[in-house]
Amino acid sequence: MLLESTLNTLQTRTESPRRAEELGTLGYLQWLAGLPRNVGYPKEAERALEMAEAFEDTDPAVQAFCALLRESLRNPLQVLSLDMPERRRRGGAKARRRMV
């Protein structure tokens, strides 16, 4: 359920490629934090990737999410680059309504 919600959130228009990367990173962290303790990461990452790939061509933030999943599966012992978004005002609800 959390994966579907995360993917839904990532399917938004973004104002720049940098913002898409930021949203993809935040989506990955949300998904990761929501994993149950008793599941294997590789299996869940493959499942998430399988679901997300359908939206990868049309949504840049989903593409960034998929890239993080692939990198984590390809190099499981390497630290991922998970830069947090820079703190700045983005226009709040008014700006979000304009993007829809």
Rank of each mutant, 00 (worst) to 15 (best):
E4L: 03
E86P: 04
E86C: 03
A52E: 00
S81C: 06
A45Y: 02
G34D: 07
T12L: 05
T25W: 02
S16T: 01
R96F: 02
S72E: 11
R74H: 08
R98M: 03
R13W: 05
L77M: 09
L23P: 15
F55P: 14
T25Y: 00
T25L: 07
Y28L: 12
L68T: 14
D59Q: 11
S72R: 15
L26D: 09
F65R: 03
G27W: 03
V100D: 12
A48Q: 03
Q78S: 12
E21T: 10
A52P: 00
V79C: 05
E22P: 01
A48D: 13
L29M: 15
P76K: 06
E46S: 10
P60Y: 04
A93E: 13
M84I: 11
L7N: 09
R98F: 02
Q11D: 11
S81A: 10
G40N: 06
P17Q: 03
T25Q: 03
L49C: 04
G34I: 14
A67V: 02
L2H: 06
L68I: 13
F65M: 05
C66G: 05
P42L: 01
F65N: 05
R37F: 12
M99K: 13
R96G: 01
A45N: 01
G91P: 04
G40Q: 03
L29V: 12
M99A: 12
N75H: 12
N75E: 13
L23G: 07
L26I: 06
L69Q: 11
E71V: 00
L10V: 15
A48N: 10
A95I: 03
G40I: 06
G27T: 10
T9D: 15
R88D: 13
A52N: 07
S81T: 13
M51A: 14
S5T: 13
E86M: 05
G92P: 00
L35E: 13
R70G: 00
R74A: 14
M51V: 03
T14R: 04
A64D: 15
A64I: 14
S5Y: 03
L3N: 00
F65C: 04
G24V: 07
V62Y: 04
